[in-house]
Design a protein around this nucleic acid. Structure first.
Lengths: 212, 212
DNA sequence: GGCCGAATCCCACTTACGAGGGAGCGGACG
DNA sequence: CGTCCGCTCCCTCGTAAGTGGGATTCGGCC
């Protein structure tokens, strides 16, 4: 039962153990071959251009260059690239950002192999693959209020612990304007104060913890 | 070259892909055998009691029952148990808590196989295994100020977005006392306000994001 | 015993935050 | 074209947050 053809897969994750696991899982499919690996977004872009894989398995949270940026760059060079995000997190903002950056599927890292290979096969057939739990997050996002770009920018400074005055100075607007935005942010996130806003924003993937 | 004896290893991680990776990595060592797997702390305690492995590879962040609690329970039943923590995070508090709970080693998930098997072999010989980067975090912790139990309790409520008054009600103390603690917390964490305190506490592993 | 540091608690004061409004201006979209 | 919505700015007001001090208790250590 020689397969009609083999499919090249690129594996991108900064954790060696995860790459080993994917290599092992994919090796059980006779028509899959792991054509290459990358440990960060920059390596991923280079590897994709070199290998032109049929599917790319991509983590989001990586050093040097994150998955989102890598997805954008890869699809600039190869608009037909099929990218499957494999993430630990399920914040609605992460999911939405990945899909709108051009990912065709999104699965969670605690998925077992009977979730991973079907997802890859779906992408090979040009289909999208969004599990129910992931789709649920997206639906919840649509129901709730969505932060504007400016509001996200303010939340980014908020997690640094900046006061309203400082945030205003950074963005070149008055403190009053910041407070006005902050009021909308608190309402949209349905929280009582800025501290809770930080935890909710982190949980939903709207912002991430600064590296240092 | 038949090995003199084989060593039983228990793998504990909630991510299927990680378990697969470890299974694959360990299978390359002829004297290692993955005797069992567990996807959370409760399963880990049961599996350890049943299998009595020579070494347990344990993730920290897991649902149902976290790794820390699992380490404590396992070492209550088997004080000689050798547990190697395999974590993605490197917050000094996580590291310190795991080691004082009884773990004998601590490695990071982006470690390659040439870091993982030596760590396991070290534990098999009754030695500890703390990589430089991990030891550095611990050293930094010792240099800095360490939060008291009461202060950690307050930080836990802080990340929920509770106001000082609420925190006081929860702990049965006055708001004034909470503010006094908060003052010390801000000083110890070297931050300006409670918002920054949340991000620093999360980054250092002093507290974790609430599940919901 | 006596000293010291750490943890806990209390008070007064200044500042920042968040609620409750309102208003003008721009682009997007039907 | 008008309407919505995001961005900007404005004012007031009550309250929470953060800063300065000081008091207490308790255990360790010389």
């Amino acid at each position: 039962m020689k397969p009609s053809r083999t499919y090249k897969i690129l594996v991108v994750d900064d954790h060696f153990v995860v790459r080993a696991g994917l290599r092992d899982i994919l090796s059980h499919e006779p028509d899959f071959i792991v054509a290459g690996e990358a440990a960060n977004g920059r390596e991923a872009v280079a590897a994709h251009a070199r290998l032109l894989p049929d599917v790319t398995l991509m983590d989001l949270r990586m050093p040097v260059c994150g998955g989102l940026e890598a997805i954008r760059l890869i699809r600039e060079n190869s608009p037909a690239a099929r990218i499957l995000v494999l993430s630990s997190y399920e914040g609605d903002e992460d999911i939405h950002a990945a899909l709108s950056a051009g990912a065709m599927g999104y699965i969670l890292k605690h998925s077992s192999d009977d979730q991973i290979t079907p997802a890859i096969r779906a992408l090979l057939q040009g289909k999208r693959w969004i599990p129910l739990e992931v789709a649920g997050q997206l639906a919840a996002r649509e129901r709730g209020e969505i932060l504007s770009e400016r509001e996200r920018e303010i939340v980014r400074l908020l997690v640094l612990g900046d006061a309203n005055k400082q945030i205003g100075d950074t963005l070149g607007i008055t403190e009053l304007t910041v407070k006005s935005h902050m009021k909308n942010i608190l309402a949209k996130l349905k929280v009582r104060d800025r501290t809770e806003a930080v935890t909710v924003a982190l949980r939903r993937g709207i912002v991430h913890l600064p590296d240092e």
